[in-house]
Design a protein around this nucleic acid. Structure first.
Lengths: 263, 263
DNA sequence: CGTCAGATTGAAACGGTTCAAAGAGAGTGG
DNA sequence: CCACTCTCTTTGAACCGTTTCAATCTGACG
């Protein structure tokens, strides 16, 4: 908890691509500080020019969101401990979305310019950062599929599967028993549904025996059935996701998805 | 057209972050080749391990797509001349989506490992590549908003605005007169609608005098009215988009979007 | 014990889908 | 140059998943 915050970053990057001692030393030289933010606070807003820092989330849950001209909010990413908050601002000088804390959060802020130099001058760190950024891109694509092409019940199940997997991977929970610190309204804004509908779908998942709820904590009764209900295939989360996670079943797309090299 | 294909890449990267002569020379040393692909051909498929090349689109239109377990296709990105096709595979070794040609396309393929080395060892090139990748991320976020939070007519108008802007920026057309080489079914798969509904919405845009159609070519009658109808704010496309493009009007979100420094 | 945000439920309404059929345009072959 | 074909576009009408509105319930907290 009170470890040097740069260690958290080094650990995260090392998990993507192994670093050597010099890399870690270079990261440790980056100036940084810890800040905390209450729920519903904004770390930056669309159109802002970011300051000279880049940060990762140390604890709590946050999300990226945008608001349409008609006042509808869409949550476009959910961040948990270890995730980069504003990697975009390493190289782009204007925010395209808002970053909001869902719970109380603690954040490690470090010098953007110093970190940028490490990324650009140390290939191993650069590769790790690239993987990090590209994996977030893969999540965006999967979310686009969920929101654009899946019916409500599948969206909810898929979202639960993803959260479970990511929380487990981050060492924060088991994918079969975790807490979703989001209101149903926020879940609705993730999935492009209404809170009322999210509520009904959640109830039906419970009624069907796929999950049970205690407050905001979710117990998955049958991980396999939930992945089928959510058409969940964790390939997009990258190689370190659990190996035995179930591939999506019943693929009527055999021509499209030729499984080549079983992994 | 028959220029050295590496030049196209150098031009694209230079537009994101200025390169010097050595950078360009390093890029020119990367082995590369030109290939062509007919409409509906796939350049790679989900779960594939990419080969040792990385490519950009030289002409034609292509898109990234995924197919759900229930057989619905979602198009998650549209690529036009100059766009990177598989930057993800520079650092990730498994494809998370399918890449399909919408028209006949020509592609410049270059050595993935060589290009990767240039990116990692030449900071100016690295910065340019980062900006490129991060801007695509911003487009994903905006698409998520469109698909998740905007009604059908707004989705269609927004998509037309984005295509017009990007085609103009790429020097391929005027944003007020361009060709969309996609079927209405493909547009539907971009926007998470049915082809029937896309057709009706398109007709209504024509009836309202916002655009006119001749085959698949679109003439924008009033760019301003179209941006309002599409809630289109080009900030997410990055700094080089046209300066006078209209910001989204009627923002009931003044608390969220404080305009700070007019650009 | 009162309050307040969030969760839950019901009933009516609607945006978009589905199904089905007809029209339009481009390319092909006789 | 016409007839044929095939794909894409267009239109109508019934249907349905989701939204909307409104009311009630629940649990946490001061």
């Amino acid at each position: 908890m009170t470890e040097h915050p740069m260690k958290a970053i080094a650990r995260r990057l090392d998990a993507r691509n192994p670093l050597d001692d010099d890399d870690v030393a270079a990261l440790n030289n980056v100036r940084c500080a810890i800040t905390t933010h209450p729920p519903e606070s904004f770390l930056f807003r669309e159109a802002d020019r970011p300051g000279d820092y880049c940060s990762i989330l140390l604890s709590g849950l946050a999300f990226r969101q945008k608001v349409t001209a008609h006042g509808k909010r869409q949550i476009v990413a959910v961040l948990m401990a270890g995730d980069f908050i504003d990697a975009q601002h390493l190289f782009l000088d204007r925010a395209d979305h808002n970053l909001e804390a869902a719970t109380a959060i603690t954040v490690a802020e470090f010098s953007r310019h110093q970190f940028r130099d490490v990324i650009l001058n140390r290939p191993r760190v650069g590769v790790a950062a690239w993987k990090e950024a590209l994996e977030e891109g893969a999540i965006f694509r999967e979310w686009l599929v969920t929101v654009g092409a899946r019916p409500g019940p599948v969206r909810v199940a898929h979202f639960l599967c993803e959260l479970g997997c990511r929380l487990e991977r981050a060492g924060l929970a088991s994918r079969e028993d975790f807490i979703v610190p989001l209101t149903q309204e926020q879940i609705a804004d993730v999935l492009g549904l209404t809170p009322v509908h999210v509520n009904r779908v959640l109830k039906s998942l419970v009624a069907d025996g796929l999950i049970s709820q205690r407050g905001r904590s979710i117990q998955v009764s049958s991980w396999e059935r939930l992945t089928v209900a959510g058409e969940f295939n964790p390939i997009y989360l990258g190689p370190s996701a659990r190996h035995d996670a179930h591939r999506a079943q019943h693929l009527p797309t055999s021509t499209l998805l030729r499984p080549r090299g079983q992994m």
